[in-house]
């Protein structure tokens, strides 16, 4: 096991940030942690990086305890904090050279590993890091976290504040890094990125709600899931659907609405009601839930609790 999180509790004063978080990450796995802002993702990542000590429970990284063996642990991890944490007044190549030296290596030694990432920003290597765009900053930060060939890569919300194209590229790069045999733990607030991971944990209000494999389809346990599309735009219909009898949940999903209903009878009733709205471009389809649909259901359930 690359990472063992064992019943971890953490609180800041009265605020309980993590409640009995418990999971494991296998060697070479790309593990995602998904949850809204303030769910406790960053705190958990800081525990993994040996920067915070949990109140209760243990956290082991390749057998190194984050509290006792932090010296050994800090040699084998590559950590990328949620906030951009490189030196704005140093150039791209100076930042990289600095982090290489801090880990007792040099840029040449592990260049192969970061080649794909770094070559995209290499044309700007003389530019100060503070003057890079969001996407380029993340690529530089990733290069710096990788330069010493860590065994575990811990990335705290690496795609937050990055445009859609760069996000896509970023995940492609993570896949390549994973192929080099490096275990990756990554967090994100974006549900749609869940599909990119081998396994995904959903975290909310400090609690790990579920761990799933996005490639495996769900059994359709979750009552009835439908998508609703319209050429006229769907946003105006959201409240109308939500107020219908039999509607359990409805949320925006890209240019569609996703709706869950309580029972099959509700489905026929709603369909009939929709026909009465007089919008001929309305498309109402029964669908299989994705990870995102699954998590939306879980989050609203736990909120109800």
């Amino acid at each position: 096991m690359s990472l063992i999180i064992d019943q971890v509790d953490l609180s800041f004063g009265a605020l309980q940030a993590l409640k009995q978080v418990d999971f494991e990450v296998k060697d070479g796995e790309l593990f995602g942690l998904i949850g809204p802002d303030g769910a406790g993702k960053s705190s958990l990542f800081r525990i993994m990086a040996s920067l915070l000590i949990p109140d209760k429970g243990r956290c082991l990284m390749h057998g190194h305890d984050v509290v006792k063996d932090y010296r050994e642990l800090r040699k084998i991890i590559g950590y990328m904090p949620g906030r951009f944490s490189l030196y704005m007044d140093l150039s791209v190549e100076e930042n990289l050279a600095f982090y290489a030296r801090v880990f007792g290596t040099n840029v040449k030694e592990n260049y192969e590993l970061i080649r794909d990432v770094y070559e995209q920003i290499a044309p700007f290597k003389k530019r100060l890091a503070g003057k890079l765009s969001g996407g380029m900053k993340q690529k530089l930060a990733l290069s710096c976290a990788l330069i010493h060939r860590p065994e575990v890569l811990i990335l705290d919300e690496p795609t937050t504040g990055v445009d859609a194209v760069s996000r896509r590229e970023f995940w492609d790069m993570l896949k390549k890094i994973q192929n080099e045999g490096i275990t990756i733990v990554v967090s994100t607030p974006y549900m749609d990125e869940a599909e990119m991971c081998d396994r995904v944990g959903l975290i909310q209000k400090g609690k790990l709600l579920e761990i799933t494999d996005p490639s495996k389809p769900y059994e359709n346990d979750q009552a009835q899931l439908f998508s609703l599309k319209s050429e006229k735009g769907i946003y105006a219909y959201l409240d109308r659907i939500r107020n219908m009898e039999g509607c359990k949940q409805a949320w925006l999903f890209g240019d569609q609405l996703h709706v869950t209903l309580h029972s099959e009878e509700d489905a026929t009733r709603v369909k009939a009601a929709l026909d009465g709205w007089g919008d001929s471009s309305l498309e109402w389809l029964k669908i299989t839930p994705s990870v995102e649909d699954r998590f939306m259901g879980l989050i609203s359930n736990s909120e109800a609790l």
Partner: peptide, 13 residues
């Protein structure tokens, strides 16, 4: 303030 200390601490320094 700039958060770079977080990286320094997480390094073998």
């Amino acid at each position: 303030e700039f958060g770079t200390m977080e990286l320094l601490l997480a390094s073998p320094l």
